[in-house]
């Protein structure tokens, strides 16, 4: 199976690569349109600032490419936020695969929301029922609100989208590559979709 990780100006792409390696998959990290289009699975990870990252993606027309992909695509963390319609971070229009608004957590909370939190109301194809109530690792200051594409929610004072999916597009706000055996299970589910 050919798995491509979208290469862009974001941190921590290595850890996704290593997590796949632990599952016996040697992924390619690339921004080559042809390689991304022909991969069996595309992972769009990332940690970074949203508006500068969107600018980077647009310059390389990766935003258009991502929207047109037909194989299963998995966005992680910032990847999820960039697959939404708009983010408050740098007031940026995003790729718009999901019709969701990304907002900043209120300042009365400790921000970033950092650490292990639980998945609730799990549904859909990416997350199997056994991950209901289990803990996964989050690090983020912005969140996608709940919507009809929400496939799992998590509470950090307010409920937000921990995972979303629509057609061939899947995304998690948490880091499956850093979430121990539960995260490995979710990555495996993605590879087996």
């Amino acid at each position: 199976m050919k798995v491509a990780i979208v290469k862009y100006n974001a941190g921590n792409i290595r850890s996704v690569y290593f997590a796949l390696e632990r599952l016996g998959i040697e992924a390619v990290i690339t921004d080559d349109h042809e390689k991304l289009r022909t991969a069996d699975r595309v992972i769009f990870p990332g940690v970074g600032e949203a508006s500068t990252t969107m600018k980077y993606l647009k310059e390389r027309k990766l935003d258009i490419l991502l929207r047109e992909l037909t194989q299963p695509v998995l966005g992680i963390c910032l990847g999820l936020q960039l697959m939404c319609a708009h983010t408050e971070e740098g007031d940026a229009d995003c790729i718009g695969i999901f019709d969701l608004e990304v907002k900043k957590f209120e300042m009365k909370l400790k921000v970033p929301h950092m650490g292990w939190n639980s998945l609730e109301n799990v549904r859909g194809k990416l997350l199997s029922p056994e991950v209901e109530g289990t803990f996964v690792y989050f690090v983020h200051s912005y969140y996608a609100a709940l919507g009809e594409n929400t496939s799992a929610m998590t509470h950090y004072n307010i409920p937000f989208s921990a995972a979303i999916e629509r057609d061939n597009f899947y995304a998690t706000q948490f880091h499956p590559e850093k979430s121990g055996p539960v995260g490995e299970k979710i990555l495996k589910n993605f590879l087996e979709l």
């Binding site: 850890s15 690090v139 590559e177 850093k178 979430s179």
Partner: peptide
């Protein structure tokens, strides 16, 4: 460590 450890 990054290769082998699946937590942050």
């Amino acid at each position: 460590i990054a290769e082998h450890v699946n937590i942050p």
